[in-house]
């Protein structure tokens, strides 16, 4: 089996390169088709004071007077040589903006991802171990309600209840307003993280719970679960040793596949909580026609989601003995 890994990884990398190129083309085309005019967006209210000649000057300076294909070619060439360009919105190199934003978003998204995985899996196992009991019904109802709750709405409700009503949590941002970034303590950061984290976690939990539950119900009816019962195993024994172990793989796959959704959720959550993360940067880039930043965010997201899916695939091979074996047989002459 080990001899297949280099080939597998190489194909994945080539595929990923093509995918990134395709996403760049599509994202660039969409950005060009968007009605947002970068110059107007840049000028904002100052637009009244600027004549057409000056606007043309700005456009020429930015290279907007050239055909779209030339613009894309230049951008693509720069990206290949490692230069992501300059963000007009933040007046800084895109790479720097990305690095700063990822730093803020990573704890939020990472923790939300882990928590929703652990919580969702546990709830799914508990619910699926004894289908149609009250525990199952409560967990299922909870998951259905969560699954149909819009993230931004939940975020607003959390803000209204905990920040405005109970004054337990801050209303916005990743740190107290008016405090220098180097003076912010870890506790303050966590305090500002709580609500966005809850909003984002709750979004992910429902899906994992329902997937795990469905798989658990199936496993608990399987021959090997019945045989374990016939051996004198308790329900908990079967649920943990056979149920959870066998349900873990599909749950992990869903978890990795849900990375894209997590990012989508983070855009909404960060927007509501004014949390200066990657999602918020993407929104600002979109609104102000900041194409280099928008493309960089899109590529970043593509990379994360694609790598996530690849990890899920590889995990399947590592964890499930049957997949590796089939591979082995196929490879033999």
């Amino acid at each position: 089996m080990s001899s297949h890994w280099p080939i597998l990884v190489a194909t994945r990398i080539v595929r990923l390169a093509f995918l990134l190129a395709a996403v760049a083309v599509v994202a660039f085309t969409l950005a060009k088709l968007s009605p947002v005019d970068p110059v107007n967006a840049y000028l904002g209210p100052a637009i009244a004071k600027v004549g057409p000649e000056q606007r043309e000057l700005i456009a020429r300076k930015w290279g907007l007077d050239q055909p779209a294909t030339v613009q894309f070619g230049k951008w693509f060439h720069n990206v290949l040589s490692g230069d992501l360009g300059t963000s007009r919105t933040f007046n800084a190199p895109v790479a720097d903006v990305l690095a700063k934003r990822v730093q803020a978003s990573l704890p939020l998204m990472g923790m939300a991802w882990l928590l929703s995985g652990i919580l969702g899996f546990t709830l799914g196992v508990v619910a699926g171990a004894r289908p149609d009991t009250w525990t199952d019904r409560i967990i299922r109802t909870y998951a259905y309600v969560l699954a149909s709750t819009p993230t931004f709405w939940l975020a607003i409700v959390l803000l209204v209840v905990f920040s405005v009503g109970l004054s337990l949590t801050p209303v916005c941002c990743a740190a107290p307003i008016g405090v220098l970034p180097e003076d912010v303590t870890l506790l303050e950061r966590l305090h500002h993280l709580i609500l966005p984290l809850i909003a984002l976690t709750v979004l992910g939990v429902a899906q994992i719970t329902l997937h795990t539950r469905a798989k658990m119900v199936e496993i608990m009816q399987s021959d090997f679960a019945l045989y374990a019962r016939a051996q004198g195993a308790s329900l908990a024994d079967v649920a943990v040793r056979h149920g959870a172990r066998n349900a873990a793989l599909p749950a992990i796959t869903v978890l990795f596949a849900s990375l894209g959704e997590l990012f989508g959720g983070s855009i909404l959550t960060e927007q509501v909580f004014a949390y200066p993360g990657l999602g918020q940067a993407a929104v600002q880039a979109g609104i102000s026609g900041d194409v280099p930043l928008l493309l960089a965010v899109a590529l970043c997201l593509t990379l994360v989601v694609s790598v996530g899916n690849t990890i899920a695939d590889i995990l399947y091979r590592v964890v499930d003995p049957r997949i590796g074996a089939v591979h082995d047989l196929e490879a033999r002459p």
């Binding site: 021959d223 045989y227 016939a230 051996q231 040793r241 056979h242 172990r245 499930d320």
Partner: peptide, 26 residues
């Protein structure tokens, strides 16, 4: 104790040694 009908009664993801161990504990 039951001797079941088919291979599907053994957990496909677990080595036989472990399954015997579990049966012993049970």
């Amino acid at each position: 104790a039951l001797v079941p009908q088919s291979l599907s009664h053994l957990d496909p993801m677990t080595r036989c040694r472990k399954q015997i161990g579990w049966a012993g504990q049970r």
